[in-house]
Amino acid sequence: MITIKNLHASIDGKEILKGLNLEVKAGEVHAIMGPNGAGKSTLASVLAGREEYEITEGEVNFDGTDLLELSPEDRAREGLFLAFQYPIEIPGVSNVNFLRTALNEIREYKGQEAISAKDFMALVREKSAIVELDAKLASRSVNEGFSGGEKKRNEIFQMAMLAPKLAILDETDSGLDIDALRIVASGVNKLKSPENATIVITHYQRLLDYIVPDFVHVLYNGKIVKSGTKELALELEEKGYDWIKAEVDKH
C-alpha cells in the first residue's frame, strides 16, 4: 500500500524526519507512537502534502505512484486520507456541500460519473450513522462551533464518505473522553477492510485498546527506532519512552 524509504523532511531549515522507513500493506493497521517532538505529526503532514515541509531525501511509493510528486488534492484522489489533529473550522462552508464537491472531484479524477444528489444524501445518512454524527451537524458549516469530540467524529465521517485506501489518523484520540473515543474507534473499525489500511498516530496506548494494531512502531528523533506488535504499546505505556531513548542514544 505504502512504502516509505529513507524519508528526510525539514521545516524552516530544521530537519525533523531523518531517514524514516515504513511499509504498510493492505488490510493492516499500524500504530506510530513516540514522545513529543519525535516527528509524528510531521510524518502525517508530509504524507498529506503540506507545502511548508521540504523533502530533502527519500521516496514514498503509494500503491505504485510517487506520492511526493502529487499535489495534496491528488493524494486525496489517489486514496490517501488524513484525519487532522486539529480539524479546521471553515465558517459558511457547509460540511455536506464541500464533501459533495470533494467526492465528485475524486470521481472525476478516476473517470467516474458525478454522484446524484439522491445517492449522495443516502450516503451521508449511512456514513454519519457510523460515527453517530447528528445529521444536523453533517450539514452545518465545517467544524464551526463543534465540540472537540464532534470535530474528531466529523473527521471519521469524512473518511467514511471518501472511503480512502490509506487513512492516517493524527492523534485522533487526543482530547477525547472515553465515550467519544469509543465511537471514533468503532467508526474506524467498521471502515476497516482487506483492501484498505490505517496508520494510527498516537501518544497514548489507550486508543489501541479500541483500534487494535497489527504493528506498533516507535518514532524517535525523526526515525522509526523500534517496531513490534501490540504488546510493544503496552510496554511503552508501562515503561515510558526513556528506555527507548537510552537504547537509541547509546548507539
Binding site: A48, G49, R50, E51, S71, P72, E73, R75, A76, R77, F81, L82, F84, P87, I88, E89, I90, P91, G92, V93, N97, F98, L99, T101, A102, L103, E105, I106, Y109, S141, V142, Q158, L162
Partner: peptide
Amino acid sequence: LDEEAVFYLRARGLSEKSARHLMVSAF
C-alpha cells in the same frame, strides 16, 4: 483566505481552485 482551511479542503480532494472558490462563496 485562511490557508489552513484551503489545505484542509485540498486534503479532502478539492482542487486548490475549488477550495478557494468555496471559501469565497461562503464569505
